[in-house]
Amino acid sequence: MSLFTRKVEQVPCTVEVSHRFEALHAHVRFNDGSTIEPGDEVLVQGPPVLAGWGEVITEDRTAVITRANALERLWTRLTGDFEVMELCEFSFSEEITL
């Protein structure tokens, strides 16, 4: 991994979007087993995957993974923790006055 330059990889992936009463979820799986490390950026190519009501869509797509360079990775590891309160957003709204 380079200190300053970012590596870009194209990876086959499967996206699954469920927009049903029983489950609302949306996930991306990398078919070749690629894993994401802190600071990496992922962009699934193509038009938005939009499931209508009652639909589950499973589609093969290509994802572009922009790998963080060593500095960014270190930075994300050091500072990511500051955002940890995001995990506590149970039924919170962002605004103070609605």
Binding site: V42, P47, P48, T76
Partner: peptide, 24 residues
């Protein structure tokens, strides 16, 4: 509800496991 976020660029951040335990 629009689930179109999948095709937008997403940056992955990092939390230490213990912070995930405490927070969740």
């Amino acid at each position: 509800v629009n689930l179109g976020f999948l095709t937008k660029a997403k940056k992955y951040t990092y939390f230490r496991p213990k912070f995930i335990y405490y927070a969740t």
